[in-house]
Design a protein around this nucleic acid. Structure first.
Lengths: 146, 146
DNA sequence: CAACCACTTTACGTTAACGTCAACGTCGTC
DNA sequence: GACGACGTTGACGTTAACGTAAAGTGGTTG
């Protein structure tokens, strides 16, 4: 778990076209993010994606690519697919969402925020541990090299 | 996943005794960290803990408590139990570890570090997304309230 | 046209990380 | 001495997130 450093393709180096009409096949998308097509289909089955269909074949637009990107980022942060879907669904339902739904969404967001804070702290602490262990390891190595 | 905010009990408010001789039962530890005894036994089975035994019964010392704490923190950061164990084992084997082992440990640590960096970036990005979604949600709410 | 992709659906398999019983031993206490 | 709270070891069950294999469709290329 927790790999991949070449991902996150963001070719925003264009002249900011009004609407990017680029589309992607499932295979393209899979290579882009270093996942398998199976994974992408699974995310669709779980309600995280809803690509267009040309016959049987799936056609992905920018919107879908962004969703996938956010989904994978959420995963790296330890969110379950169900949690991610919940946010995505509420986000989509926002424009015509009723007050209760919106307040619920704000609650969820606050929750996620707490999560982030906690994780930041965890990372800080973990980095200290790593520093510590590394120092000790280097010391022992030093002694071995005489 | 990703809950609990009352955990991390660190009663370091004593007069720094030379060696804290406090011990814990499995139930105490479980309540402390808001996990079940089953979880703690499972971690032992996976080689993450190795408590003393008084007859059949497990007795946990400070060292065990710290390990459990680190383990749970690692989990919140998305590490698998296997990964965590690997680090713990190498850490324990450090004092008499050979050079190859130690270099391997340093590699692993560097890897974890990269992980942390990536996660920090992910968190920053995610926080922006949350900001954005929250803003939009508040706007819609505003309009609903007339 | 055959061969080869890349795509599709269906369905069963797998792994990690526990949950959930059952069946039993050991205290303290009422 | 029965009862409840806590501990123990199996052993089987469960869930999430895919992997994998089988069998078929549709385009293009030598």
């Amino acid at each position: 778990m927790m790999n991949a450093s070449k991902a996150d393709p963001t070719p925003t180096a264009n002249g900011s076209l009004p609407t990017q009409r680029r589309t992607y096949s499932i295979g393209e998308l899979a290579r882009m993010f270093e996942v398998t097509p199976r994974t992408i289909r699974f995310y669709e089955q779980e309600g995280l994606l809803a690509p267009e269909r040309r016959g049987q074949t799936r056609i992905y637009h920018e919107k879908d690519r962004v969703r996938l990107k956010l989904t994978l980022r959420g995963k790296r942060l330890g969110f379950s697919l169900a949690e991610i879907r919940e946010v995505i669904e509420m986000y989509d339902a926002m424009p015509d969402g009723n007050a209760r739904q919106l307040k619920r969404l704000l609650e969820i967001l606050a929750d996620k925020r707490n999560n982030m804070e906690r994780q930041l702290e965890d990372i800080r602490l973990m980095q200290r541990e790593l520093d510590d262990v590394e120092m000790r390891a280097r010391e022992v190595l030093e002694r071995l090299d005489h």
